[in-house]
Simulated assay, not measured.
Amino acid sequence: MASLLLRTLLLLLASIQGSLVLSSKIVGGRPALPHSRPYMISLQILGNHFCGGTLIHPQFVMTAAHCVDKIPPEMVTVFAGVHDLTNPESSWQAFSVQRFYTNDYNENQILNDIALIQLDRPASLNANIQVVPLPRQGQSLPMGTQCLAMGWGRLGTELPISSVLQELNVTVVTFLCREHNICTLAPRQRAGICFGDSGGPLICQGTVHAVDSFIKGGCASQRFPDFFARVSLYVNWINSILRRVEEGEEKNEDWQSSGSPMGNP
C-alpha cells in the first residue's frame, strides 16, 4: 500500500513538473542575487522541488491551486530562505503543512488557481526570510506595468529545472488574456515562465499581484502570453482566512492563560 502511494505521488509530481499546460521554470532569465527575494518559497516532495510559493504571512504561503490539488498535505515540505536548491544553508527553514485552502478551483478551465498553505508553525523572519504585501481587493494592474517573475523551473521546455533561483523582467499585456488572469511577456526576447515555476509570484511595484498559473504553446513561445492568477480578486478571501486563524490562536492563548486545558475549551 505504501509503495503504491509513493508511485502515485511520484507520477503526480512528474505531471506537475512536466505538463504542457502548467508552468514551471524561468526561460531566458538571470540568476537572482542570493537571498534578494526573501519571500520566495520552494515546495518539495521527497526532496524534489515541484512548485514555488510566496510567503505572505509568517505562517501562510500563497501558491497555485493546481500545485497542491490531490496531494496529501503530509507529503509536502515547505522551504524558506533558499537560493540554490542543491546547496543547503543555515538560512533554510523547513516546515510541514498544517492545511491547504483553495477557493472553488476549476481544474478544467484553470480558474481560481490560487491556494494558501498553512504552515505547522510561523517562520522566523530575518534578512533572508520576509513576507511580501498583497494588493488591494480589486486593484487593477495596467497594461505596460513592469514586473518580476521568478522560480526554479525549467530553463527550456525540454531542459532540466534550475538549481539556482532565476528571475525575469516582464511586461503586463492584455491580448489573449482573461479577466481572472494577469498576463505577461518579456519584450524583444524569447523568455518566460516554464514548468516548475508554477505557484511562484509575479512581483509588481513591491507587491505580489499574481501567482504563476499556466502557459500555452510551450515555454517562451512568444505566440502566447504567460498566464498568472490575479491575486487582487482573492484578497478578501485571503484576509478572512488569516483573521480566522489569528483569532483562533488568540482564543487558545486566552484559554491557556485562564487555566483551561490545552486545545479545545
Rank of each mutant, 00 (worst) to 15 (best):
M1E: 15
L9P: 10
L13K: 11
S15K: 12
S19N: 11
S24M: 04
P31L: 03
L33V: 11
P38Y: 09
M40A: 13
L43F: 02
I45C: 08
L46P: 01
V61I: 15
P72Q: 03
T77F: 03
V78H: 02
F79W: 05
A80C: 08
T86W: 01
T86P: 00
Q93H: 06
R99T: 06
N103R: 04
L111T: 13
L111C: 01
L116V: 07
I117S: 09
A123P: 05
S124D: 14
N126Q: 05
V131T: 15
S140G: 12
P142L: 01
M150G: 05
W152K: 01
S163D: 15
S163Y: 10
L165D: 01
V170C: 10
V170Q: 03
V170Y: 10
V172Q: 07
V173T: 12
R178N: 10
A186K: 02
R188E: 15
R190G: 02
P201Q: 02
L202P: 09
Q205P: 02
G206C: 09
H209T: 11
A210Y: 06
A210L: 10
D212S: 15
G217V: 05
C219K: 07
A220L: 04
S221F: 05
P225Y: 05
P225K: 04
F228S: 13
N236D: 15
I238L: 02
V245Y: 14
G248V: 04
Q256V: 10
M262I: 12
N264P: 02
N264A: 12
P265T: 00
